[in-house]
């Protein structure tokens, strides 16, 4: 599983492309800049995340995916975490850097309606 995750992660790290830029401009994809270190070593502070919004009727989330979610206590805050477990429509979200991450270990399972999107690309300067 670890190898699979690493390969999946590698696929996310890409060089900027015209299609993504157009996707952002027309609202087909969305972007966020990372603040914080809970996703080290894979995601660095300052990385630009490209994500697609989740369709509640048809979604393809699985263990290992990187997702954007609303913070369960501070709804206006968006957080980036990895899906650690899925129990029906509830998600155990964890940071890759457990020593510096506040996540489902404290909050418990996160409801599906708090999941905003799935990371599809990562751009790094």
């Amino acid at each position: 599983m670890t190898n699979g995750l690493l390969q999946a992660d590698k696929n996310l790290l890409q060089k900027p492309d015209l299609f993504t830029l157009l996707s952002l401009l027309v609202g087909y994809r969305h972007h966020l800049r990372v603040v914080g270190k809970s996703m080290l070593p894979f995601i660095l502070e300052g990385d630009l995340l490209i994500y697609k919004k989740i369709n509640s009727k048809k979604y393809d989330l699985k263990v290992g995916d990187l997702v954007i979610a609303s913070h369960p206590k501070l709804k206006s805050h968006l957080i980036i975490k990895r899906i650690y477990k899925i129990d029906q429509k509830k998600f155990d979200l964890r940071g890759d850097n457990p020593l510096s991450s506040t996540d489902s270990r404290e909050w418990g399972l996160i409801n599906f309606n708090l999941i905003v999107g799935k990371v599809v690309k990562i751009f790094r300067d």
Binding site: K15, L18, L32, V35, G36, I68, N97
Partner: peptide, 27 residues
């Protein structure tokens, strides 16, 4: 493209940790 994306205004997504992120909970 890199230059454009670098200048693109972006909201923040928080990779939370205890402390600088300002997220606290007495739980």
């Amino acid at each position: 493209l890199t230059s454009i994306l670098r200048k693109l205004p972006a909201k923040s997504v928080h990779a939370h940790c205890d402390g600088p992120c300002g997220v606290y909970d007495p739980a």
